[in-house]
Design a protein around this nucleic acid. Sequence first.
DNA 1: CTGTTAGCGCGTTCAT
DNA 2: ATGAACGCGCTAACAG
Lengths: 355, 355
Amino acid sequence: MSTPTPEAPATRPAGPVTLQQVAERAGVSSATASRALHGSNGTRIVGEELRRRVLDAARELRYVSNAPAQALARSTTAVVGVVVHDVADPYFAAIAAGAMGVAREHGLLVMLAATFRDPELELDYIARLRAQRARAIVLAGSGFADREFTRRLAVEVDAYRADGGHVVSVGAHGIAADTVRPGNRAGAALAVRHLYELGHRRFGIVSGPRALTTVRDRLDGARRQLRSLGVALPPGQIVDGGFTREDARVAVRELLARAPEVTAIVVLNDVMAAGVLAGLRDDLGLRVPERISVVGFDDLPFAVDLHPALSTVRLPLAEIGAGAMRMILAGPAVEPRSLDLDAELVVRSSSAGVA
Amino acid sequence: MSTPTPEAPATRPAGPVTLQQVAERAGVSSATASRALHGSNGTRIVGEELRRRVLDAARELRYVSNAPAQALARSTTAVVGVVVHDVADPYFAAIAAGAMGVAREHGLLVMLAATFRDPELELDYIARLRAQRARAIVLAGSGFADREFTRRLAVEVDAYRADGGHVVSVGAHGIAADTVRPGNRAGAALAVRHLYELGHRRFGIVSGPRALTTVRDRLDGARRQLRSLGVALPPGQIVDGGFTREDARVAVRELLARAPEVTAIVVLNDVMAAGVLAGLRDDLGLRVPERISVVGFDDLPFAVDLHPALSTVRLPLAEIGAGAMRMILAGPAVEPRSLDLDAELVVRSSSAGVA
DNA sequence: CTGTTAGCGCGTTCAT
DNA sequence: ATGAACGCGCTAACAG
């Protein structure tokens, strides 16, 4: 016999409904209700009849379990922390999106923390994520090449690990941990070689804050390649673009003022490359690629729409985030693992043979 | 007398340190330890001496409180949920960043959920955030103009509210709630008027999925303005750009095929505008703005770097996110409040007088 | 298969 | 000012 009139809407008690209330409504013990709703491993099977009653009661009461209470009882949660510098930066947005996609597939909730490049904040967030009993933390922001900071980071991370947490870092952070390694060095080398093969011999580099390991790696990759190619790179031809479009726009003027003979510029990320292109075109009136070639880094979505379309080094950003999340799911290993994600050169219109 | 040898590193017990262990080490009761560490309102004062001992013990043990346990005891948390369609989309990234900035200032942690435009997922995330006892939820994704969905959303939101949750929506979601209202209608009208004043009379619109309320609002704003200006807009001159660069690129070809006389195109967001510009330039060989003018929407960071620089309608994205978060902090009100954030026209090089 | 009984770690009365 | 005791909601033994 079907139920013509749906069960009384069950005037919900004020405040959150508890398992206990669901159990009462179903006429069973809270233990049974718990088993029916979450069917834990060992003691799972609940009689067909009771199970149905519990499920019905839960639905009628619009019950959702109290996650904090579950966390306390099970001493584990379904949340993972993802720490980035800034979500508004498309580089981090892409990584975060990749991580969140995988997290969703596995029922994990993500707490996203933005440090705005403040090391203190990074430390603070790790502690808070630890307090939240986040199952794992993805350190997606660039590492800082600062001895003292690295030491403190290690302390914080160790404490988190001692509590059973799992940390995965994107790029080197100076700590032993599972790591997703973007091909920063090799990528920069790719950019240099590309320009070299086009005939360029006078290079300039628009860099970012040297304190960031990402910057150091890219810079290092470019330098090594240049050296092995026998091309000189005077210190004056490396300028700091501050990792922002505006600073880079100014920086490129400085670069050209110091070394007007430069015909090729490697910019350490696409955001700065946009500024460099603007500076070259609108401030300096130098044509790209006729007078000067430019190669960026990251291949952010807008790179293809820059003017001219930006030749750049592509990094599988979403895959980096997804890979980090998968390492989390794989559980911690005895030996720190690492996943290398290679960079790839994307040639568009901002690079061409030297005149 | 300073302590030459730092206190014994206090071999930490395995697993997370508890308040109890801190208390023992300090030789006090857990109640005192709790008070010393969190100094709750009423019963706050703890003797100077004991307070110091507790703080020291906590530091030595690297204690951090168990947030889930605190949540259970206090029945409140410091986490807020933010639901967006996709973090990788710069529009949402900007809103999320704005919200996160304010959250940080107030010690709130944010759980970010991406629905990838799947209504079911949105419902699901609300339930999970409710289970997490998130203090508030910001519905930042666009609403869906679907009766049945809206009903289910209301049910979910009501349940969350019944549990004491606070929801703030960005744009209309068909539910009564505190709302941050971006000037979508007025913004679209601004774009139209701008083009009209430049002499354009034959308009085309590259729209997005009509199911999204954001799209509907913008479209509606443009249409109304056109009508009040006495300009006709045949249905065929509105094409769906799918909210992506690629789809929009194809869509603009379709538009021009159907209505070659069009001289002005309003694109409902900047991502699509990038595709439109590419399509016009590379596929159709039509010069912008000489042959045809284009105005976008949102003023995403890359708009200025498009070719030509995109005239667009600026929305204070970060402010939208920040505003939503502030409404949360202000606590729930009896009457739903709303915050209007106006759009502003930004004229650059993609729009000009009709030939 | 189901109910009873203990905690999980913390905040909070209520005494002292 | 401090401690003892209880409860938050749920899971996990342990019986039966």
